[in-house]
């Protein structure tokens, strides 16, 4: 039996661009699928096809047990969509926005009003309920947008990059809201550019590139395919490098890479922060002074690099200096997130 969201061979072209090039998806009821990919990968197009906003050129889609192409209007009754842009009317108050959406979901005016009040309380917007939405902060607008998508408590939800552009605190808040939501049994398809976000919220992740799903699995499975974590150490004295390499070999799950001129050593590990602490203690015991040490986790860029051989174009510009492999292309590609302990 197909899941709450099911797609088979979705194709959509815009002129010469093949935005979707045969996408298959299957999201079991009550689970969360994270659609992960860079800008232009086809994530939004997939969501638009599944939410009846766009007709695919080819393929089949079933949402909440209803054929999307055959009965789009029935599908609309069973879904909530929260977009990349906070799609609320900024001149209307939060309450007016929710009431309007409720009425357009064919609720009576009275029921829509009651539901709006409930949602405003739930989403912590009660104090701002009667202010025009343009006075809201970015995070408040996203919450209002999400509330609007939840007016009829739809069994299936779609969120297109729900936290893009939010600061970390607001992102965290919105994650909490989304977690609560899915714990209630809602099936959710979420698109994101952040592996961390998919990690946090999704049971399953589908990596999308050039309109195709190029990998599927849990976040651990994907990271394992990407090569997992590494510990990176920069020692203070060049003569300590040999000893440091010996220490790292003891903790490592693979070959230690040594880069003489930057005094940097890298080794693949498993065990995360706990292991990192042990490495630091051991280096300290041996009297090795270190300039920098960090646990590097695979990022979306790494997942992409390992899966596709090319770099995701959405990453922010971090220091790309990567000693482990020398070519300029690689050092541009491997922008890893550093958790540095000083």
């Amino acid at each position: 039996m197909p899941g709450a969201i099911y797609a088979e061979g979705l194709v959509k072209t815009f002129g010469d661009v093949r935005a979707l090039d045969g996408v298959d998806l299957d999201v079991p009821e009550g689970t969360v699928l994270g659609l992960l990919g860079p800008n232009g990968a086809g994530k939004t197009t997939a969501v638009r096809c599944l939410t009846t906003l766009l007709r695919p050129d080819r393929g089949r889609a079933v949402v909440a047990g209803i054929d999307v192409l055959a009965h789009p209007d029935q599908v609309r009754r069973s879904i909530g969509l929260s977009g990349q842009f906070a799609a609320v009317d900024e001149y209307l108050t939060g309450r007016e926005n929710l009431q309007m959406v409720g009425q357009l979901y064919q609720m009576t005016a009275k029921a829509a009003k009651a539901r709006a009040g409930e949602l405003l309380d739930q989403f912590n917007l009660a104090d701002a309920a009667d202010r025009p939405a343009k006075t809201y902060s970015g995070g408040m607008r996203r919450r209002l947008d999400l509330a609007a998508a939840l007016v009829v408590s739809p069994p299936v939800m779609f969120m297109d990059e729900p936290t893009t552009g939010l600061d970390p605190r607001n992102r965290q808040q919105l994650w909490e809201v989304i977690k609560q939501l899915v714990s209630g049994g809602t099936t959710l398809l979420l698109t994101t550019q952040y592996l961390e976000e998919a990690d946090h919220l999704a049971h399953d992740i589908a990596v999308v590139d050039h309109g195709r799903v190029i990998a599927r699995g849990t976040s651990d499975q994907l990271k394992a395919r990407t090569g997992g974590e590494r510990v990176e150490v920069v020692v203070h004295e060049r003569e300590h490098m040999a000893t440091a390499a010996e220490v790292l070999r003891g903790f490592g799950k693979g070959d230690t890479t040594v880069e003489e001129h930057t005094r940097k050593l890298t080794v693949p590990v498993t065990g995360g922060a706990k292991l990192l602490a042990e490495v630091i203690r051991e280096l300290d015991t041996r009297g090795i002074e270190i300039d920098d040490i960090g646990l590097r986790r695979p990022t979306l860029d790494d997942v992409f690099l390992s899966l596709t051989g090319h770099v995701a174009e959405a990453g922010d510009e971090e220091d790309g200096a990567d000693g482990a492999s020398g070519t300029p292309a690689d050092s541009r590609g491997r922008k890893r997130k550093k958790e540095t302990v000083k």
Partner: peptide, 8 residues
Amino acid sequence: AVTDAVPR
């Protein structure tokens, strides 16, 4: 409220 989803 999310759990008792009733499409109109």
